[in-house]
């Protein structure tokens, strides 16, 4: 089985290197996780499309040696929905940032989950808007600082994994860039999952979130990620009142269940109408 440390050259688009990501940014670890997952499942790269939104995470498609679609802010899932429906044989991985997926793109996120269409979302959550210089996001922890919450955020922050489950996603997991060995395995499982899958990966933004909240450089932030998370066994999210989870975010697979997938249901609908979908 492929694992971290393997040669990923053929999975990365060499002519687009180096990446735009800042030194110490966690996004490269996640992109490596996606490449590793593609290697792990033995994907035919001609039949893979990585679709991204706008922001730091949205740049990922450029670095993948697959089909790549860099779309508009928040709408990556809507593009991906059309793409997957038009050519269901494609493996479609969607990279979105926390602001991209949960603020401007929140509507598309819940509706793609509701349809249970076979797309894999890798949600890069660095708690802040990086590309525009450190503004607050729906994931910015309440009380913490950004350039638009200089006095501390008073808004409660979203838990993307709870939202995804409530909306109907059938595979929901969370990992971190600290867990760089396990995270690619989760992404691989999510890609294999026949339905709408979400892997939220907590990532570090030392340039903005770290600096504004005095969390140190990348190594300190990675330790901070380790300290604020707790691996839990596969299964429903544990009660957040559990003592060892106070102030921590669980990581692991919170839901993995098989329910009818959208393109499969669409195939049945066409057949019932006498048509052959995607013959």
């Amino acid at each position: 089985m492929a694992s971290v440390g393997q040669d990923l050259t053929e999975y990365l688009r060499q002519e687009m290197m180096p990446t735009v990501w800042c030194p110490g940014c966690g996004h490269g670890i996640i992109a490596q996780g996606i490449a590793t997952a593609l290697q792990q499942i033995g994907a035919d790269l001609d039949q893979v499309v990585v679709v991204g939104g706008i922001g730091c995470s949205g740049r990922t498609p450029f670095y993948m040696n697959t089909g790549a679609m860099h779309t508009t802010h928040g709408r990556a899932l809507a593009f991906a929905t059309g793409l997957k429906l038009a050519r269901p044989r494609l493996t479609v991985v969607v990279t979105m940032g926390d602001g991209d997926a949960l603020a401007i793109g929140g509507n598309h996120f819940i509706h793609a989950a509701r349809r249970n269409i076979d797309l894999t979302v890798v949600l890069y959550n660095n708690s802040i808007y990086g590309m525009t210089g450190g503004q607050s996001a729906p994931t910015t922890p309440q009380g913490s600082r950004s350039t638009t919450t200089p006095l501390g955020s008073i808004e409660p922050n979203f838990d993307a994994t709870v939202l995804a489950q409530a909306a109907g996603a059938t595979f929901v997991a969370r990992s971190t860039t600290f867990d760089f060995q396990e995270m690619p395995q989760l992404i691989a499982r999510a890609i294999r999952h026949p339905g709408f899958s979400v892997v939220e990966v907590l990532s570090q933004c030392p340039t903005y979130y770290g600096r504004l909240n005095r969390l140190g450089e990348a190594p300190e932030m990675l330790q901070w990620e380790r300290d604020r998370t707790l691996p839990v066994p596969d299964g429903p999210l544990p009660e957040i009142t559990r003592e060892d989870l106070v102030g921590k975010q669980p990581i692991g697979i919170f839901r993995e269940e098989i329910r009818p997938e959208y393109t499969a249901r669409y195939r049945e609908l066409c057949a019932a109408a006498g048509g052959t979908y995607n013959a």
Partner: peptide, 27 residues
């Protein structure tokens, strides 16, 4: 549907336009 073509009602016009473009790239 009887022709095997795809019809989808999206959540708004932004996503309808985006899905159309995504579908075009799907052929």
């Amino acid at each position: 549907p009887p022709q095997g073509g795809v019809f989808i009602q999206m959540e708004d016009e932004l996503s309808a336009a985006a899905a159309v473009i995504g579908a075009a790239w799907g052929g």
